[in-house]
Amino acid sequence: MTVPEFDDRHAEFLARVSRGEKVEATDWMPDEYRMAMVRFLQMHALSELMGALPEKEWVPRAPTLARKLSLMAKVQDEVGHAQLILRVAEDLAAPLGKGREELVAELFTGQAKFHNVFHMPAPTWADAGIIGWLVDGAAVVSQAALLTSSYAPYARILQRVCAEEGFHIQHGESVCLALAEGTPAQRQMLQEALERWWEALLLFFGPPEPGSASSAILFKYRFRTKTNEELRQKFLTKYVPRIRALGLTIPDPALRYDEAAGRWIYTPPDWSKLKAIARNEGPLSQYRLGLRRLSYEQGRWVREALLAPAKQAV
């Protein structure tokens, strides 16, 4: 048996994923695929960790014990998702000489990003509801599109992640429905939260034009197949009628479905905000990173205890 030339292997790999075949952690893969995947998975994992923070802030303030319990379950799920995704990322990053610790710590140096939506404030209980219903709804739209991704270990983990996010959305809906059917003040609070989050929900999926070189690689190897705009359209199709059904007003007078074009027309959000967020200069970027740093330090003794050789008598 002869070892194939690098170019042959690369071409064969590209042909394989183009045919819709799946890649496993132990397969040979081009470095650009491996690096783009590590970057993507690292950001997904860190976003799950960072996403737990705005929700955690609401556990002590949630109006009832039942709501506190559901929120705590959500926070546990998000942290759990981060663990599952980090595990997949580790196997990919190992040949690059990067371990779990580096993947997590790069958040603090700004080398790794977390999702733009978690840089936004959540000042009222209705914000917590909108996050659960619409932000998690947007997350499921983008994650469900990856269930057939070329990287099988990630796609397998996503099945669990999407199933649990389903619960998050139901819980968010439950909070929003309760507010929508509540007192005028509660309805008003929900309307204001929607107004605060609308632009963030459009920004969520990223700009419509082709993205960075790294994201082009994800498309080339069929890790991703749906564009940012396709995902945003899908989100609007699913959620605009539901939001309107609750009697809420979406803060965009230009928003309408163009039957002829078969797509939603909307006022574009201020895309430049994404650039500031990418530099961790979003509204709450530094505050949330501070919280994450704190929880990372507070958890240090646990990580160390897990690694300490067992000393107890048997």
């Binding site: 952690a25 132990t26 580790e90 196997d91 190992a94 040949p95 000489g97 371990g99 779990r100 610790e101 240090r300 990580r303 160390e304 690694l307």
Partner: peptide, 13 residues
């Protein structure tokens, strides 16, 4: 038989 995954992963603090 396939080689095991490279055993670099997770490190302590």
């Amino acid at each position: 038989l396939q080689e095991p995954l490279e055993a670099v992963p997770a490190r302590s603090g």
